[in-house]
């Protein structure tokens, strides 16, 4: 299996949910396939043997459908609770932000607007970068996702985060990085012939490195 690091607060939750679903459906899957192949072997054609005439309406026979049916429903409820609680945490609530960034998709590059030294967006010291997102570890970020032309999708696999960018709208989301490193940002919504090269990198830095980067970039962009 290919291991992918968990670099956000909710990455582990999503992975746990996936594992949880995996165990439930895995048991069902193995059980169903097991019974299936056993039946094929058990009831292979033997000369002279007559088949049983069952039409599945008798109560004692029907229970072989009704009981699994009810069990599937129960499993569904468990999965549902898990799924919705994770969903609520990632997409539906918004913890207070330490900082806000803007992510702008266009054919075929990502533009990132960092708030700069004053930690406020849309001020003169904002740092614009193309295909390089710099964030500080253990800080909660809000992102405002926009698009200039077609649909894009901001996907950071190590965060387990994904959100479509829609032209004409600004979509807000959040993440909190939990470990430093440099990782891929992909565009996961087809956006034209350059879709395959619309790759960016996210740099998760500790406080000192991040501050140094802000100073360096501000110096470079100041007119």
């Amino acid at each position: 299996m290919l291991e992918l690091v968990q670099a956000s607060t909710y990455a582990a939750d999503i992975d746990r949910l996936i594992l949880f679903i995996g165990v439930i459906v895995g048991v069902w899957f193995l059980l169903a396939e097991g019974i299936f192949f056993w039946l094929i072997w058990k009831f292979r054609a033997k000369p002279g043997e007559r088949t049983q005439y069952l039409d599945g309406t008798e109560k004692n026979v029907k229970k072989w459908i009704t009981i699994p049916h009810a069990l599937v429903l129960v499993c569904d409820v468990f999965i549902l609770v898990g799924a919705v609680s994770v969903w609520y945490d990632v997409k539906q609530q918004l913890p207070d932000a330490d900082s806000t960034i803007r992510v702008i998709g266009q054919q075929w590059a990502w533009t990132f607007q960092h708030p700069g030294a004053d930690n406020e967006l849309d001020t003169s010291d904002d740092i614009f970068t193309v295909n390089d997102l710099h964030v500080e570890v253990e800080k909660t970020y809000h992102f405002q996702l926009e698009s200039r032309d077609v649909l894009h999708s901001f996907s950071v696999p190590v965060f387990r985060l994904k959100q479509d960018a829609i032209p004409g709208r600004s979509i807000t989301g959040w993440f909190t990085p939990t470990r430093t490193g440099e990782h891929d940002v992909q565009c996961s919504e087809i956006c034209g012939i350059g879709h395959g090269v619309m790759a960016a990198r996210i740099h998760i830095e500790d406080a000192n490195t991040h501050a140094a980067w802000i100073t360096r970039s501000s110096a470079a962009t100041t007119p």
Binding site: I21, G26, F29, R160, K162
Partner: peptide, 23 residues
């Protein structure tokens, strides 16, 4: 089809779909 069916559960569960969508 059983394999296709059970893997669909991952995608129908909104929380897991955040990660799996379009992969």
């Amino acid at each position: 089809f059983l394999i296709g069916g059970v893997t669909g559960i991952f995608l129908g569960a909104s929380g897991a779909d955040i990660y799996f969508h379009d992969t």
